[in-house]
Amino acid sequence: MFTGIIETLATVSHIRKDRSNLDITLESPLARELKIDQSLAHNGVCLTVVAVGEDNYTVTAVQETLNRSNLGSLREGDRVNLERAMVLGARLDGHIVQGHVDQVGHCTHIDQKDGSWLFGFEYEPGPGRITIEKGSITVDGVSLTVVDSAPGHFSVAIIPYTYEHTRFREYRPGSPVNLEFDMIGKYVARLVAPHQPAD
């Protein structure tokens, strides 16, 4: 489990293809604190540490993960949002995030406001893929509050700290992002689906 509060940015230093998998090595100030079998969220995707070096570590992404996320498009030198698993008993500063990406969405627009930014995103609607105004959404692992919501589209407001300390400052219209919809909303959608009138 994660909270969607990004700890730091890691930099991809090496990518190796192993059959249908990708072994991704990243440089991070957290590397010395990691251990093999530990779970970390990379752009919101929960991956297991398989090797640790002095200033880097390696994780493996399987084909299912690559199909559902933007990790398959990573290149050496790219930066990723990084969060270690939450500690039981710690404050939940974001919201409950599983690290299981639902789909890849795309940035549609970026509006600079007076001291903040409004980012718009589009996605493919479907069962459990919903947003509500003032509800929670995870974008590349960042826990955010939805500002505007419509089927297949939502926007979020970004404060300067988040803009400077996550991948948000690198986004452009068209940028692919990993989306994890609110877990409680997904369960509610599943429960009410059998009782919805047929079209």
Rank of each mutant, 00 (worst) to 15 (best):
G77W: 05
Y123P: 00
S136M: 07
V146L: 06
V147C: 04
R167K: 14
P176S: 12
S13Y: 01
V188M: 03
D140A: 12
E170N: 15
V50A: 06
P173D: 09
V101E: 01
L26V: 12
F154S: 00
D93R: 11
K35G: 12
S39I: 05
N178L: 02
A189S: 15
H153M: 04
H165T: 14
G141P: 06
L30T: 11
H106W: 03
L47A: 09
D182Q: 09
M1H: 12
Q63I: 09
C107M: 14
I137N: 00
L66D: 12
V97F: 04
R167I: 13
A61S: 14
D140M: 04
R68L: 12
F168N: 04
I137M: 03
G4L: 08
I110C: 09
Q196I: 13
T25D: 05
D55E: 12
V142S: 06
T131S: 02
L144E: 03
S155K: 01
P176M: 06
I137P: 00
P151A: 14
R172I: 10
S69F: 04
T166M: 00
D18H: 11
T166N: 03
P29K: 08
E64S: 13
V104L: 07
E122L: 01
G120Y: 03
L47Q: 11
Y123M: 03
S149L: 03
T8H: 07
E124F: 02
F121C: 01
G135N: 11
V80F: 07
C46Y: 02
H95W: 13
F168D: 01
V142L: 05
A31T: 14
Q63R: 08
V188Y: 03
V59C: 03
D93S: 15
I130Y: 00
G99H: 00
D37A: 14
F181Q: 06
F168H: 04
